[in-house]
């Protein structure tokens, strides 16, 4: 996994609540057995006038011009600004894969769905929970200023706007450590293989029927 430390990134505002993973990456793209190549299909039904199919070349597909991702001012955005319950619905990791592949590495919202939230961390994406009031302010500033960027610093857990105002966000020390160093969690966990084996032995003695 790639590491995340700091970013000064262009912000793209997606002003709707309950954005679900079917909207983020529709089901037909889940047929892929690969982890990459989902970016062009991110928000497919909102982004294109036609229906996307896996393997399609998206360069000449008809665009829904009003959709934020298609507006020139948000081209190259790395921070996705969203509303409540972002990423609800299915557990498909294709959703963060598509978001990451499209160039985003930070998502700011008042709340996230649980599974999506943890999937982000496994893919070098930092999901930031900010209060509804702060998110409202960011939406307003983003609409008012072309080229609006936010400076995100994981070390100090801060987000700073162009005016220099800042807020802090929470992250567990474990997630912060893994994200800052781009660590492979499996490798970390396997350092505790003996503890897992010891637990397994005790568990099997207590409930042998779990091991048939």
């Amino acid at each position: 996994m790639k590491a995340f430390t700091t970013l000064n990134g262009l912000v793209c505002p997606l002003d709707r609540a309950n954005v679900d993973t079917d909207a983020i990456i529709p089901k037909q793209f889940l047929k892929s057995i690969k982890r990459s190549g989902f970016g062009p299909f991110l928000f497919d039904e909102w982004r294109y006038k036609d229906v996307g199919e896996p393997g399609m070349d998206c360069t000449n597909r008809p665009l829904k011009k009003d959709f934020v991702l298609n507006q020139p001012r948000y081209k190259g955005a790395q921070v996705l600004l969203a509303r409540d319950n972002f990423g609800c619905g299915s557990s498909r990791e294709h959703a963060p894969w598509a978001i990451e592949d499209c160039g985003f590495c930070v998502i700011i919202a008042p709340s996230f769905a649980d599974i999506f939230f943890s999937n982000c961390y496994k893919n070098g994406i930092l999901p930031i929970v900010a209060s509804a009031a702060i998110v409202d302010q960011l939406f307003r500033e983003c609409a008012a200023q072309k080229g609006y960027k936010l400076r995100v610093d994981l070390e100090t857990q801060t987000v700073r706007n162009p005016a220099g105002e800042w807020f802090t966000f929470d992250i567990t020390p474990h997630r912060k450590h893994c994200l800052m160093n781009g660590l492979d969690e499996i490798g970390l966990t396997l350092q505790h293989a003996n503890e897992i084996k010891a637990f397994e032995k005790k568990h099997k003695a207590a409930q042998p029927w779990l091991f048939n």
């Binding site: 990791e93 499996i186 397994e200």
Partner: peptide, 21 residues
């Protein structure tokens, strides 16, 4: 019982455990 992402599927396959709070 709960859903997990594909990275977690790999983690469970490799370690029989899940990192969770």
């Amino acid at each position: 019982a709960h859903g997990i992402g594909t990275s977690e599927v790999e983690h469970v396959l490799a370690t029989q455990t899940l990192i969770a709070k």
